[in-house]
Design a protein around this nucleic acid. Structure first.
Lengths: 203, 203, 203, 203
DNA sequence: GATGAATGAGCTTTCATTCAT
DNA sequence: CATGAATGAAAGCTCATTCAT
């Protein structure tokens, strides 16, 4: 009986994840979810209090990890040197390790959290994440290139960095592929940032 | 009568733009729009045939310009040289001219078109734009660095490039500011791309 | 100016007649009528108080004639003889004269009155007409064939007689054709009635 | 639960049938139907997908039978003889058997199908039926009385025949009564047709 | 645990009619 | 006379949620 209950719950969660990913929270329909999970509307409410709650069930672990990551982040400042002197292949390898830590957390539920939570209490998570990373970029900019004028780019680059990661997770379901592309994504971002800052240095 | 009619239409369009930007097409409510425009539901339909049509009214000019841009685009390949030899300030100035042509088109209605049209006939515009730009990146990669392995990055970078532009338009309503930041955004992208390709060269 | 006003009124009436005939009173749309009459909604209400009133304007003459006809009808009892002894061609000629009197009244406005007035105060006209004619059939039945059992047929035949006439008016706009067919319709009805009554006689 | 569900469905179907018969498809209101069935709008849509679908539920069986009847009809040509030699009581008995086969199909749902389906996919059923029967009359006319001039009467008589049947079904809910009157209706029609054709013969 | 009927507020859209200009 | 903007009630339909069984 216990297993049965667990299995039903699992089916509902999977169906919900699919529906939420496809349509977003608001446009997702409980009717579709229960149909996909081969159960009934009434039974849904035996397992989850509401549409919001099943969304939370899917997303909350990732959410807490994210918050933890944000609060306890230790920045490693490898990149603080002239771009001409960088060994890109070494950098790529180093960033690969960073990516390897990230990738397990950057799963479909992460996608759910940042892409589909618009009408839930998680509405602001994406922005908070972008702000947090944007702040880091900003600090890098300040310390590395204090004369750089367009400090707003910090948040903008953060935003598109996250978006790039989302794009990767959306398109590529294979973990290794994700690992490679997210590494490349970090590299691309780091080089782009260094690039505009070196330009800024010349001012 | 003429002035009054125009004014009501303007109020409706403005209210609709706001509502669509906030909630997206589907979740936007005619009731909210007419309330904001201080008129009634029935009167809305004296001005616009349907929810779809007022959305089109807002978006169609930008849409056609975009299509035209995509079909008639002439790529200028300034960046095809080693990154060490680039004069970034010169590049920045050059890209500033490119940005200056783009900025007038990248307005709030462009935002509407690519961010809020999900449940309209414009649903695919964003993807088409990303594909188009992604194709260009891909061609650059192929000609400039044929050994580069992660060709999928072409589309990913295209996607985040567009997203960065969207971010800028969302946050900064001042045209000059937009101009500066979009220039910087293009520069950042170009340098990032060149960066990962030079890394790829070393393989 | 007078002519102008008259012409506008005429255009509205014509457009309304067409719309009412096509869709019936309720589903007819003032917007369509004014569009067809090349004027505006507001102006419509300068000429007619309401949708009901323009319908009345179209129909009222015919309605009053019909009421007059019903109240002052003199029945001519030509048919009261054994069917075997009838000279059908003579009968056809005689009924042709009857039809000739009817046809001018059986125009498109008559159609409007009996077919399209369902949601107006004329809703019952068709039934009254059928009842009236049915009563005549009933009286014929009673006097000619008092043993005939299915006296309900009186009203039923009346109903389909009217329906046949309506069918003719709908399909054939040419007056002469109408004249011929309505004659035939009366003949058909008379012969049918005599037929079932002669059968009834044998009981 | 089973019984309850069936009962609600039955109540809805009955209420819908009544509403459709009174107002026709378009003017019938779901809100009225659910009020009469003592339930709510939302619940209506637990039972039927749409207004069209509940109409189909009422009408489709009859519709298919009608199509079958039209396609597989075998005409029995009893009446092809001089009217003077007809034993009307025998004919009446014979036609009574024909009517007996028809009557079960000519119920209130048949009424719905031919009288109230104007704004549904069944819009044309009545015309098709009239055309079909009209064609038969036409064939009889051609073979029996090739010189008859007003061949248009074929369709006109078909139309009023159907209308007479409709009238009977509308007014008389008792099956036996319907049986008797429909028999008489067929007889009336047959005799009327023979009558005008014999007249035509004399030409 | 499971069922799905029931609820009611919400949606977009239509339309006859009013009225200020 | 003419205009058409404005009104508001009503339509068909959707959906998360409740609850009796």
């Amino acid at each position: 009986m216990q297993t049965k209950k667990d299995e039903m719950q699992k089916r509902l969660l999977e169906a919900a994840q699919k529906e939420f990913l496809e349509k977003g929270f608001k446009k997702a329909s409980i009717r579709n979810i229960v149909k996909a999970a081969k159960t009934t509307i009434g039974n849904f409410y035996n397992y989850f209090e509401s549409k919001e709650m099943i969304f939370s069930s899917l997303v909350d672990t990732v959410y807490k990890e994210l918050i933890y990551f944000i609060k306890n982040h230790q920045d490693v400042d490898v990149a603080n040197q002239p771009i001409e002197q960088l060994d890109i292949n070494f950098l790529r390898e180093y960033l690969g390790n960073v990516a390897a830590q990230l990738v397990p957390r950057l799963n479909d539920d992460f996608l759910l959290l940042v892409e589909c939570g618009m009408d839930t209490k998680y509405a602001n998570v994406k922005n908070e994440l972008i702000d947090f990373i944007g702040l880091h970029f900003f600090e890098h900019i300040e310390s590395y290139s204090p004369n750089y004028k367009n400090i707003e780019m910090g948040r903008i680059i953060s935003s598109q960095f996250i978006h790039g990661v989302i794009e990767i997770i959306k398109k590529y379901k294979d973990t290794e592929k994700r690992q490679v592309l997210i590494t490349e994504q970090i590299l691309y971002t780091a080089l782009g940032v260094m690039g505009i800052l070196q330009g800024g240095r010349n001012d």
